[in-house]
Design a protein around this nucleic acid. Structure first.
Lengths: 354, 354
DNA sequence: TTTATTTACGTGTACGTACACGTAAATGCT
DNA sequence: AGCATTTACGTGTACGTACACGTAAATAAA
């Protein structure tokens, strides 16, 4: 640990070289007025020459900023612990930037209730955050919220799903279409000539679940592009209860005995796995989404072969860090960050620190 | 941006509550002597009560530490650009922690020359780094180096491959055995009853390349555990030139026409891909390692089906950050961090920011 | 008992930047 | 010309911590 000797950088050195006080240098650095064009230019030149980078620690210390970030995401439900992963990422980021004077407060909404979204959003805005991270599950309400946030001139980040043209700072999340294609590719490896493939959407609000449609689209497009004659069937199930799903599934499988692979377009793949296990249908390849405990269990026991996963924890982590980097001017933030599309199997799940 | 009002935290507040000066509090915080046990206890109690966390910015500023990190990794060779990825991660980390007074200097060695390793290591130690990150490719020489580093009481991190019992701060890298198993699992999906599988090791120094052996072991163990009668052949090639590889490969394929899948145990899978393409053997499934440009090209064109990858960039990034977090006491550092084992295909490579 | 040493503290300055305030000089206005 | 305002700076203090230095009191050594 060496000490810094007589430094050749810093506002003091700049001031010395320009024959002005550090106050003037400070004004130039922060683009404040009160400096003659001549002096300003001279100082700017010296800053360039020295490649001066303000000492972040000193700067943060002196400015004693306190920033409050707000997060609006779905609550962890009993049905799925998916949102616990982004939340963990958010918490980790919060821990890391706490020392820089940033607090992160999370607000939750119920995925089954638009009303809860609106209420939580309102509550959040009441606290006048300096930056906002949201998972815009409900399209219309999210647009309304995004516009309010924009009027307040607060940086906004989206995770998990994107909303076009909302002047948001960044979007961090999956490319749904492409993940559907990947599922198709994986299935395509094991499929024989006359096998059929089944895509299943399970959601209590099917028509509004744009996620599922994008994935299904990518899935079908792959086979189309591959020029394969493979028949792709679709099963939409409007309920998430096992009994209802079982009824629909078994009817389909009864009518279509050639089905040899099933693609479930979301994390509810464990419901299908449970049914297949019960019915002893281990001849069917099953592929679905997300690193949930339930799903991992079926991955290990063999009912599920592949899980596709897009780093939910990292989405939360990067979302917060993007806001931080923007506000503290650490670096530029990318408008869109698409997460890698990970493939999880029995043989690599141990190392997936979701 | 709110200002901090009258704070209830900080050494000053602790000093006030304990009826001592901040100097005494400072001594307690840094476990220095010169404080009576009684006072020390009182202050420690108050610190706990307040859950006091020293202001990192102020602390860094006041201590004006300047730390030099040294990195010793293989040079980017013309044959493979693999090491450009860890290097990029290292550079990114360097950029991020530069503002905290850390400089990172990289030293390179030639993977074909033990001598170059020793020379670079010596050169590195001359500069008296405060922390060291190395990729210990040569086992014996690395152990010698690790011991020297330990004597100097400098924190040491390994990436890419581990060396047991070297008192290193952390290891960040792949689990080779398990990645071999994963390759086997992927191949196992498409294999028919009587198909044979070929594992190929390509290295100019086969007997010392412990990486390859670990992977091959995992690969074979999978089939063993699965209780499959699949025959696994092995081909060791001591040269990396296409002509030599081609001769060995074609001879093997000629003798064993039932080979339907090939597993290359390192990034030289592109050599095999080139040969298979030339010989129009697209009936063979090919799987290998690493997100290199050459490999990605064959992934896109279809010769290679899967690439297994263990986030080389992240290894470099995390290695540096681990040293940083340790020295700045940001957080505890894990002894071993195994990277996720990623599967790259034609359908997801676009989003793999290696 | 006197002197030297150790213990247990307090004080002051520094780190590099931010920002409020002060103030000469220049300019504008009537 | 006389006064108000603006321009273009300089100065001082603060941020929270680290650390060197100073010093009174307690203890040990003579």
């Amino acid at each position: 640990m060496k000490k810094t000797g007589a430094e050749l950088t810093g506002v003091k050195e700049i001031a010395r070289r320009a024959n002005v006080s550090i106050g003037t240098v400070d004004r130039v650095i922060h683009n404040r007025k009160g400096v003659s064009d001549e002096t300003r230019q001279k100082i700017k030149l010296i800053i360039e020459e020295l490649d001066f980078q303000p000492n972040k620690m000193a700067s943060l210390l002196a400015s004693r900023k306190i920033l409050n970030f707000a997060v609006l995401i779905p609550a962890v439900s009993t049905e799925t612990d998916y949102w616990s992963y982004p939340l963990n990422g958010i918490k980790q980021a919060a821990t890391e930037i706490k020392q820089f004077g940033v607090t992160v407060k999370s607000y939750f909404y119920d995925l089954d209730s638009v009303e809860s979204f609106k209420l939580s959003a309102e509550e959040m805005l009441k606290h006048e955050p300096h930056a906002v991270l949201i998972a815009p599950s409900f399209v219309e309400e999210s647009i309304t919220l995004a516009q309010k946030i924009q009027e307040l001139d607060i940086p906004l980040a989206f995770i998990n799903s994107d909303l076009p043209n909302q002047n948001n700072l960044t979007y961090i999340g999956p490319d749904l279409y492409q993940s559907g294609r990947l599922a198709a590719q994986l299935i395509n490896f094991t499929i024989q000539q006359n096998d059929k493939v089944l895509a299943i959407n399970i959601s209590s609000d099917l028509k509004n679940d744009h996620h599922l449609l994008r994935k299904e689209h990518g899935f079908k497009k792959f086979f189309e592009d591959a020029g394969k004659p493979t028949e792709i069937l679709t099963l939409n199930i409007n309920e998430t209860k096992v009994a209802a799903v079982e009824k629909a599934l078994m009817e389909m499988l009864g009518n279509q005995p050639e089905i040899k692979a099933i693609f479930v377009t979301n994390s509810r793949v464990n419901i299908i796995a449970e049914i297949l296990k019960k019915r002893k249908r281990d001849d069917i390849l099953l592929i679905g989404y997300d690193f949930l405990k339930k799903n991992i269990n079926y991955l290990v026991s063999g009912q599920i072969t592949f899980l596709i996963c897009q780093r939910p924890k990292e989405q939360g982590y990067l979302g917060i860090m993007a806001l931080y980097k923007h506000l503290f001017k650490i670096s530029e933030v990318e408008k869109s960050v698409y997460m890698p599309i990970d493939i999880i199997t029995k043989e690599n799940y141990q190392f997936y620190n979701s």
